[in-house]
Design a protein around this nucleic acid. Structure first.
Lengths: 181, 181
DNA sequence: GCTTACTATGCAACAAGTTGCATATCAAGT
DNA sequence: ACTTGATATGCAACTTGTTGCATAGTAAGC
């Protein structure tokens, strides 16, 4: 049920529609929890049924109408309770590492290519992270409490990304020592 | 279908039973791809049907009989083909980071506790990783090709783990500045 | 004799997540 | 006129993963 709670987390500060949520899930909270729009729409309806969210339709000109969801008192309580619950020990599945177990002189070049692509992607993401940090999280100790938490998530992303870049470099160097057939 | 390929990867060097696989998935390859025994047994049967694996029953004394699976030629080919395919950009979902978005003076102590627990767990895991590295991967450049790949996966685990420890320390320090109510 | 733990495989129900498609309005470009 | 893209929501089928339970033999400790 983590998706439900991630959605509620995104709704703490603003009431949002499914479309807006799925857009936001591509940035910010979505860095740490992604979901497709199909999943989000379904989950929103389930949560409204449960009483965690209330919905209202907003008529728009020049655009289709949208359904805006907001946290109810019950939703707030459920979210707070969830934070206190035990966190499942993390999944950490990575196809690329499994693929590396199959390294051979045949596929070394291909894997190096995949690693390079991921490295580039991570560079772009890190650039985004750093930009957010510079603009909003200069001095973490001075932030209001909730923002400190958000900062820590961002810091985790940055550290992970930097570590990943270093690993990519190590990997590419070692793959270069694999002789081709 | 990554589980199928992870299983085949585990079967490259040895023929194994479902039970042995699910044990191995708690270490080695399982560091990067876990699965419950239920999932493994099901997947094994499906793969045998597809012709990627063959099975034979082994009678044992003092223990229940077991079913040993081995890679077929088709399995080998499917595995090699998979390595060349595109890797889905990774998931990276972490409940704990979502929880941090909900940081408040009420729950700061609880979250610090969760982080401490994870830190301890990671310490134990890193100890294991380091032990494996010391014993089997002293000089990566001299390893045979396939082992180089395995080493790189291990190196990724070690780097990630070390980065995580550093993050935990940063997080705990910042959480300590949150005043209790 | 009893409990606990390990070996070994499996079913069934459910929850979570993916893929492909469908619909509809409007703005902007060609 | 026609296409593309953004906004906005949704269904249906499917795959993947989780949870809880069931069975059954043996070994070791109390």
């Amino acid at each position: 049920m983590a998706l439900a709670h991630a959605i509620m987390t995104a709704l703490i500060e603003d009431d949002l529609s499914g479309y807006e949520l799925s857009r936001d899930f591509e940035t910010s909270l979505g860095f740490f929890w992604q979901a497709s729009h199909q999943q989000i729409y379904q989950e929103l309806r389930k949560m409204a049924e449960k009483g965690w969210l209330d919905k209202r339709e907003v008529k728009q000109r020049g655009k289709p109408n949208k359904i805006i969801y907001g946290l109810t008192k019950e939703g707030h309580e459920a979210l707070n309770a969830w934070v206190y619950g035990a966190t499942r020990t993390q999944v950490a599945k990575d196809e690329l590492l499994v693929k590396l177990y199959n390294l051979s002189s045949d596929n070394a070049a291909h894997l190096a290519g995949e690693i390079t692509a991921r490295r580039d992607e991570m560079m772009r993401r890190l650039y985004l992270y750093e930009k957010i940090r510079r603009h909003h999280y200069q001095d973490p100790a001075l932030l209001p409490t909730r923002r400190k938490g958000v900062y820590l998530a961002l810091a985790a992303g940055i550290r992970q990304g930097e570590q990943f870049l270093a690993w990519c470099d190590e990997a590419l160097a070692l793959l270069a020592t694999v002789e081709e057939t």
